Simulated assay, not measured.
Amino acid sequence: MKVSLFITCLSDALYPRVGEAMVRLLAKYGVSLQFPTVQTCCGQPAFNSGYWKEARESAKTILDAFEDSDFVISPSGSCTGMIHHYPKLFEDDPVMLERANRLQSKSYEFTQFLVQVLGVTDVGAAFPHKVTYHPSCHGSRILGVKDEPLALIQNVKGLELVPLPFAEDCCGFGGTFAVKMADISGAMVTEKVDHVLETEAEVLVGLDMACLLNIAGNLRYRNEPVRVMHLAELLYEGVK
């Protein structure tokens, strides 16, 4: 089967190690990820700001990039969730709508693919640290990704999972929301980090680098030593 990596802008530009971890983990299960270089932004910033014409242009590039893929895997619930909005973008274009529905049906967030498609809940990792988990809004609410990451985390040897108070509260990033309503966004991430610190965890793990970037920035601003990791990074570090 042809499995392609949809790396997303943040991971590509700022956190390439997340993509590397995904590639190396999936290689353990015989999955060789391909990387169509034509891929670009999923169009979410334009879509959320009301610029649907511009969002369609980005979406068309993504549709072309992954036209021949059997599966499309991404480290971001947010960007994978945007693909689920493509049918809305093309609802008046039957040809593009069919392509959008096809891409939606074969696109998976990383943990979804591991658990739902490969049937893997234990990668054989060991990570002897105290960890708390932040469930990103788009992954859990748009994609319904809830049990998959927890199954993977709970099977990591030596890992102590500490519940995050008010875990499902938004971290305050929200893409353009963080720019347009910076004061509210700042208050939200401060509250999120307060709860992270309550857990006394050594590591905060999540599924979306946008959320993790926001939380990590607040932690650094406060000189707090909590390590922030994507789950793919944690799992790969645990099996190396």
Rank of each mutant, 00 (worst) to 15 (best):
C79Q: 12
V196Q: 07
A151G: 01
D64E: 15
D93A: 07
A46R: 06
Y221M: 13
Q104V: 15
S69I: 10
H134T: 07
F6D: 11
F177W: 11
D70N: 14
A167M: 00
H84P: 01
V123L: 00
G172C: 04
P45F: 00
G217P: 02
K157I: 04
V18M: 06
L152A: 07
V226H: 08
S107E: 12
G77T: 14
P149A: 02
S4L: 07
P87I: 08
Q104F: 04
Y108V: 06
L143C: 01
T111C: 06
L231V: 14
G144V: 06
K106S: 12
K130W: 10
K60P: 02
C211W: 03
I62N: 08
C170S: 11
D194C: 03
F71L: 10
A232Y: 05
C9W: 11
F71H: 15
I73A: 03
E57L: 08
T40W: 03
G77I: 12
L118H: 09
G124S: 02
Y133R: 04
D208F: 01
E224Q: 10
T40G: 03
Q34K: 15
Y133V: 03
A13G: 02
T40K: 09
A100W: 05
L103A: 12
V203F: 12
L103Y: 14
E233W: 05
P163C: 06
P128I: 07
V120G: 07
G175Y: 04
L213F: 05
H84Q: 04
V38Y: 08
P149S: 05
R24M: 04
L118Y: 07
G206Y: 07
C137T: 08
F90I: 10
A182M: 11
D183T: 14
F35Q: 15
T121L: 08
A65C: 09
Q116T: 14
G119L: 01
T190I: 08
L14W: 09
A21H: 02
V203I: 15
V95K: 13
F166L: 11
T8P: 03
T132F: 04
V117E: 15
A65Q: 10
R24W: 01
L219P: 01
C42A: 06
K2A: 07
R227L: 10
A21C: 01
L26E: 06
T80V: 10
S185P: 11
F166H: 14
